[in-house]
Amino acid sequence: MQHPHEPHIGREWSHCTRPQPCQTHRCSAIIAIAVLLSLGAIPDLSAQMQAAREAPAAREALGARIDSLAAEHKTYIREIHVRDSLRAEYNARLRTDTMLIGPFLLVSHTPASDDVVAAIRDEWAARTAMVGPAVSRLDGVVIGLNVGTHVIRGLAGTKVYDFSVWGANGRADYRRAAERVITSALTDALPEDMRNWLDGGSLGTRDAHRWAYRHLATSNLPQAQRCFAREPQSCAAALMGTHASGVSAHTRSSLLQHALDLGGDGSYARLIEDASDASARLANAAGRPINDVVLSWRATIQDARPNVNASVARAGFWTLIWLAGLALLAMRSTRWRLG
C-alpha cells in the first residue's frame, strides 16, 4: 500500500505532494469553469428576460415581417413565371435549324439562305476530291451561321466555326466566308507538326499566292530575298525552316496550297499521313520531290503578282458610273432661286 505522503508518481497531478493541495486545485478549476459559463450565459438570460417582457410587441413585429416576406415571395414567384414564359417564347421564336453539308453541320437560329448553303456547298465541292479519304477527320465540324443578332457561340463544348459576313457584296462575301470556315477546319485537322510549321497560317485561300508574292518581294530576310531573286535552294531553306527563319505565314500557306493543288485528288489525305517533317509531308501531298514543289510554287507566285493598274481600271469604271449619276443630280435636282 502506498504511503499517504509519498508522491503520486505516474498519475495526474503528479506534482502534488499532498492530497489537500490537489483537491484545492481541482475545486478551483471547477469553480472557475462554472463562473466562466455563468458569465457567458448572463447576456442570453437577460435577452430572454427582455424578450419575455416585450413578447407581445415582438410577436407582432415578427408577424408583420413574415407577412411582408410572404408578399415578396409571391412577387418573386410571379416574376419567375414571367421570366420563364418569356424565355419559352424566345426559344419558341428562336428556331435552331441544322443542315448537313458534306461533313459539316450548319447550325443557325434562322433558316439559312439558299445563297449561304450554295456557297458552302460549292466551296466544299471544290475541295472534296483533294481531301479524299481524310474526310472522316472533319466529321462533326460545326459551322455556326452568324449573320443576325442571334449569335451561335458554342454548342456543348464543340468548336463552332464562325460563318460571319461583314461585306455588302452578297454571294461574293458568302463565298469568302465559306472558304474561310472550310480552310480553317481543314487546317485544324492537320497534324500538330504541320500546324506548327504553318506558324499561324492556314490552308491557302484565293488570295494566298498574291499575299505570298507581296511578302516575299518585301522581305528583309536574305534567304527570302535570294529566293525572290531566283535561287531555289534559298527558297527551300527559307520555307522549310522553322518560323524563326522569318518567312511569313502567308508564304507558307501559299506553298501548302500549291503542294495540294499539285497533288490533286487525295493530296490532303497524303499530307496528313505519317512523315518525318513538314517538307516530307508536302512532298507526299504533291507527289514529287520538295525541290520541284518549291520551284513550281515560285513560278506560280510570280504569276500572281498583284496588278496595281488593273485595280485602278476597275475603280475607274465604277467611278465613271457614279460620276454620271452625280451629274444627273446636279442637272435636275435643283432650280434657280433668286433673292
Binding site: 518581294a217 530575298q225 525572290f228 496595281v308 493598274n309 485602278v312 475607274g316 467611278t319
Partner: peptide
C-alpha cells in the same frame, strides 16, 4: 529589286478620287 514605280496608276487614282469629290460637291 522586286518593287516598281507606279506614277501613272497613282495619277489615275488621284484623278478619279478628285473627280468623285468634285462631282459630289458640285451636285
Amino acid at each position: 529589286d522586286g518593287l516598281r514605280a507606279y506614277p501613272l496608276a497613282f495619277t489615275a487614282r488621284f484623278l478619279l478620287a478628285a473627280l468623285l469629290i468634285y462631282a459630289t460637291m458640285f451636285a
